[in-house]
Design a protein around this nucleic acid. Structure first.
Lengths: 220, 220
DNA sequence: GCCAACCTACCGGGCGGTCGGTAGACTACT
DNA sequence: AGTAGTCTACCGACCGCCCGGTAGGTTGGC
């Protein structure tokens, strides 16, 4: 549960350690509550109460509700960059790179999905400039996956798959984990990560013997 | 854009046709605005203005904001039942049934994603009883897909895939379409539906020659 | 004259955010 | 040692605004 410590460390490189801890706790709590209730349904009072402050006291640490949201999403994006994209960039083989992307992204979500889920669900709560910033970084991520799929296609391992559609579909599969995965569920985090990774790879690799089993095009 | 006509038809089986049309327009507008801005960020005034009424005038047609949301989600669930689940139930072969489910659900989303997207994104805006109702129906849908995957496994077409994880992953892939598909984009709706359906089937069918290309388990 | 289909005006309340304070730890100077 | 000053870390009270919702009309077609 120390997921947001780095965010605060990055946000404030000035003051003493006590303030660091307090601010980190605020970001962490806010992420958890935004995740559970949604950004607009969460009041500043909710967050203040969760960290044992009054609303006015909370404002000593934060600039406003929207800044809080932007900081959380920026942290999530940083996490994605550092834990998923950068490690994957160092993997040359396209299939292994794709496995790295999916497995690492999925693992982040099973570990702590709050910030990463807010990142995709609360975009419209941001100011236009902030939103453009986050959307740009998200697009870079999807492009990175699409490029990897294109490389797989150039290797002949993939036929008839649009890289962009493929990238979006894999991302959808991964992000959805945060909606159904429960820490206390039947499968543990590693099992879920392995299962989803296997599905993702299987989804993009070509099967020579694939044929449709029926015609789903008939309309009702 | 007549997606919500049936909702109003079902909701009010009483009055004249003029009222029907007006109410249908309200539900349709509300769905579109909830979809674009989110439920909590949408005010009753926004909806009233969109249909050319004042707030008080709107209340002649609706009972309240939460009822509006529940009606929209109920309509989306009805759509899913009628356009996806019922047709798929009549398909015996498991692979063909899965193709039917994915293709039909994906097509609904490419045609009009408003209500179906609200259905999954705004659950916490509902009253507890309403939420339990919707969640139950959603669970039935996932179970239906999981049962189909289990049948595929019994046929030997699928190995090593947990039906529940598989069902959730496919649903995630499908629902995510509403986030990236644009009517005026590079691919048209049918192409997107075909591409996603092919990926979905490929994701769950076993490949005898599948091996991991690398080890994504190394941690950073 | 009646009723469906609206409107204007208003209500209580909660929201994000701010203001003016202040307890207490710590420092500086005598 | 005493005390005046300073700064961090808060709090109670308040602001203006907008929200969902309502009361009590008004109007136009039958």
């Amino acid at each position: 549960m120390t997921a947001l410590d780095n965010a605060a460390l990055r946000a404030v490189a000035t003051a003493a350690n006590g303030e660091q801890d307090r601010r980190a706790e605020i970001y962490r709590s806010a992420a958890r509550i935004f995740h559970r209730k949604g950004y607009h349904a969460t009041s500043i009072n909710d967050i203040a109460a969760a960290v044992g402050l009054t609303k006015a006291g909370l404002y000593y640490y934060i600039k406003g509700k929207q800044d809080l949201l932007f900081a959380i999403m920026g942290f999530a994006m940083d996490q994605l960059d550092e834990q998923v994209i950068e490690p994957a960039r160092r993997v040359q083989d396209p299939q292994a790179r794709l496995e790295t992307i999916v497995a690492r992204h999925a693992r982040l979500i099973t570990q702590d999905s709050s910030a990463l889920t807010i990142l995709v669900n609360e975009l419209e709560g941001l100011l236009p400039d902030d939103r453009a910033d986050i959307i740009g970084r998200q697009r870079d991520y999807v492009d990175f996956i699409a490029d990897t799929l294109a490389a797989l296609r150039d290797e002949g391992k993939v036929v008839d798959l649009d890289p962009t559609v493929g990238a979006f579909s894999l991302v959808g599969m991964i992000l959805w984990i945060s909606r159904w995965y429960r820490t206390d569920g039947r499968l543990d985090g590693d099992e879920v990560v392995a299962a989803v990774t296997r599905m993702a790879i299987s989804a993009v690799l070509s099967r020579g013997d694939y044929t449709s089993a029926g015609n789903p095009e008939e309309t009702g």
